[in-house]
Design a protein around this nucleic acid. Structure first.
Lengths: 118, 118
DNA sequence: TTTTTACGCAACCAAACGGTTGCTAGTTGG
DNA sequence: CCAACTAGCAACCGTTTGGTTGCGTAAAAA
């Protein structure tokens, strides 16, 4: 048969700020894994390890880092554990960068307003 | 008088992908520094160290990490070196996240199209 | 001119990271 | 039942990271 045990339900240790998410994104390998998973398809560890030069264990560690940051979730099905992309943290990271950009744009606008003070 | 020596002109070691930028953003302290600088005002190291519990040296290191990622630039003026926010890498990071989100959205749309195949 | 002020550099340290190897154990297909 | 597949766990290793302290020095203020 096929027993299925959940490992990460959903929103767990959120709101420690966006830094952990950025940290998880700060690695080439992790970015590639996330890019492959961002098509919504759940994939097993060995499937994700197949096209890499790294060891399965290395990939496993990276996947757990992504999971810890909430960027993916894992579900054990039978003998394999499948990882699924989770969009929320990316959305949060995006809006954080938007805020920073917005503050910068505002500052620029104010500066221009001062210069063009005719 | 006031001798001024440049330390980071502009686009230097760009295009190693977005990972280094995310890595630089993956730290609370660095995010705070960047947030303070994102108003466009150039600030000295001691000014940026004043409202922190960290050592000036620690702040200095963080600033250099940000500089290495292109997120800030530094200019030595007299006895102090001022750091300035640089918007380009943030813009790049933003558009990268946009791409990931877009791929996810597309996948979702295709899925819905399959389900609602009346 | 003396004294602050603001930095830079170097050494050092514990902890985290990225990665590997070896071994064990549950699943599944033949 | 047995062999092959998939994964988890633990130990180990070199390097990076985040932080400190101490010291030397250029620039500005008194």
């Amino acid at each position: 048969m096929s027993k299925a045990s959940v490992s990460k339900p959903g929103a767990r240790l959120r709101e420690r700020g966006p830094a952990p998410v950025f940290a998880a994104l700060g690695d080439r390998t992790r970015l590639r894994l996330l890019a492959r998973l961002s098509d919504g398809q759940a994939r097993s560890i060995s499937a994700l390890s197949s096209d890499t030069s790294l060891t399965r264990q290395a990939v496993t560690k990276h996947l757990h880092v992504l999971e810890e940051a909430g960027l993916v979730s894992s579900l054990r099905i039978g003998r394999e554990s499948r990882f699924t992309y989770q969009p929320e943290p990316i959305a949060e990271a995006r809006s954080y960068l938007d805020e920073v950009s917005a503050q910068w744009d505002d500052a620029l606008a104010r500066l221009r307003a001062l210069v063009e003070d005719d």
